[in-house]
Simulated scan of single mutants.
Amino acid sequence: MADSVIGAAGAGGGAEVPVDLRPAARRTAAVVAGVEDAQLGDPTPCTEFAVRDLLRHIDALAVGLQYTARKEPGDVTAAAAGGAADRPLPDDWRERLPHDLADLAVAWSAPDAWTGTTQAGGFTLTGTEGGLVTLDELVVHGWDLARATRQDYQVDEPGLRAVRDFLAAGVSEGEDGEQGIFGPVVHVDADAPLLDQIVGLAGRDPAWQPPGSA
């Protein structure tokens, strides 16, 4: 159902934007739909979030980054990123989140979303940066959720390359080694799959497995 929701909502868009967010949004929506109630309290590779918290975060970003795409600054775009702990997970999250992710993909299918300046997480950034931040959130947190709930996760290669390049550009040398946008980089082989490279640049261990995995 999640794939059909986003496929219909995004039909005809995305041809003139730097990178199409619809494949990542579809895949993340499918992972959301596959989460079981018994998994909501389980840990995730995003160590500050359990599965329930990660779903809250995805819900918040799916709505908030639509305002970023439309360049509508306000309380939503001025709020610090990651503050999902006080946002209740809606009872209808399995139905709501795929629709919100569909709307997010549509918002970023407008070429104007990628131009000029906008706001997210209290920061001013270019439209292109905003689009790449959104894609990064979809891919990294989609992987977090999939790995925590033992689901497969793959995204289109153009999307993966865009996220890899975006995260790699944010790496700097610190006292404790390389620091990425999300903290210390976890190094992987240079010929590792693109998704593993992204996960490492985002400060996660690509080999992370939920407790009890074989």
Rank of each mutant, 00 (worst) to 15 (best):
Q154H: 11
D136F: 05
V186T: 15
P206M: 07
M1R: 11
I58Y: 04
R70Q: 12
P210D: 03
G116I: 03
I6W: 03
G203T: 10
V5C: 06
M1L: 08
R147L: 08
A80R: 14
T118D: 02
V106G: 01
G212C: 03
P206W: 05
L195N: 06
P43R: 08
H141N: 14
E129P: 02
A84L: 01
G174L: 02
A85P: 00
P211A: 09
I6N: 04
G170F: 05
A30D: 09
A110N: 09
A8K: 12
V19G: 00
L97H: 04
D100M: 00
P111L: 04
I181G: 13
P111I: 01
L135S: 14
A81I: 06
E36C: 04
G174A: 13
S4L: 15
P98K: 04
A25G: 14
T68A: 11
H99V: 14
A84N: 09
D136P: 00
I198H: 13
G212W: 03
L145S: 06
D144F: 03
Q119K: 11
R204K: 01
W114C: 10
L89H: 07
S172V: 15
A25N: 07
R96E: 12
D176K: 12
H57D: 09
T128H: 12
R96W: 13
V188N: 10
W208T: 08
T77P: 02
A120N: 14
L125P: 03
V185F: 08
E16H: 02
L55S: 03
G203N: 03
F166R: 04
A81T: 06
L201K: 08
A168C: 00
L167C: 01
P45Q: 00
A62Q: 07
T117D: 15
A85K: 11
V32Q: 00
L104G: 00
A162Y: 02
G177L: 07
P73K: 08
Q154C: 02
A79M: 07
D75I: 08
G203D: 07
E16R: 06
A102R: 09
K71E: 05
G116Y: 03
R94T: 14
G200R: 08
A110R: 13
S213T: 11
R52P: 03
T68I: 12
E48G: 10
H57Q: 09
G12K: 00
P23V: 11
Y153N: 08
T117E: 15
